[in-house]
């Protein structure tokens, strides 16, 4: 009786351990594949998040996400003027590349500015409305247009199509914001460290 039981037992143990092993291996493979997929996707996402999302197309792509995809496939990351030096640094760090200056073929750094329509000169042609990537311009055919300043990304795309050149880019950054305060420290007495 005993050998029979032991035989059953060995069979059971070997069988179950095999099953466990296969399950474990499957899980590992599954996880590996998933990881491969998500890292690829998250790299595009992370690049996209580093880009300023002005959708200006100065990099030669129709929007920031296509450029992010293209960067993840190996395109140079220094083609984004609105992002400024910070975006270039961040992307270089993210992609583990040496930091390069901005590619001058794609424009120059500029302070953040917002499009403003000179309303008395607007003829209501709706061309800027069609050009705006974020629907920040209001107006109708043969009616005056205006830019919603809080929605404008400063992408410049509406300036070119305007037949009467009535759109200006107005600088929005007040210089006082970047100024920092300098505190004055009391250094008359010798430093007293209390513990």
């Amino acid at each position: 009786m005993l050998p029979v039981i032991s035989h059953w037992l060995t069979q059971f143990v070997i069988g179950s351990s095999l099953l466990l092993f296969i399950a474990f291996a499957l899980l590992k493979i599954n996880r590996y594949l998933l990881q491969q997929l998500t890292t690829q996707k998250s790299l595009v996402n992370r690049i996209n998040r580093a880009l300023p999302q002005t959708q200006c197309g100065q990099c030669g792509h129709p929007g920031c996400l296509p450029y992010a995809r293209s960067i993840s496939l190996g395109e140079a990351s220094n083609k984004c003027p609105p992002g400024g030096q910070e975006t270039i640094l961040e992307l270089a760090e993210l992609l583990n590349e040496p930091v390069r200056g901005l590619d001058p073929a794609h424009g120059q750094f500029r302070d953040f500015s917002v499009a403003v329509i000179r309303e008395d000169e607007c003829i209501g042609c709706t061309k800027c409305i069609q050009a705006c990537p974020v629907d920040a311009i209001l107006g109708g055919p043969k009616l005056m247009h205006t830019v919603i300043a809080s929605e404008c990304t400063g992408c410049d795309l509406c300036v070119e199509p305007c037949p009467v050149d009535c759109i200006d880019m107005i600088n929005q950054l007040a210089p006082s914001i970047s100024q920092t305060t300098t505190p004055y420290f009391d250094r008359l007495s010798s430093p007293g460290v209390s513990s």
């Binding site: 996209n48 998040r49 880009l51 300023p52 999302q53 002005t54 959708q55 929007g63 920031c64 996400l65 705006c132 990537p133 974020v134 629907d135 920040a136 929605e151 990304t153």
Partner: peptide, 15 residues
Amino acid sequence: DLELSDYWQQRFQFH
């Protein structure tokens, strides 16, 4: 800036 760019991205997608 990130908050703003998120908003712009949303607006662009809606566009």
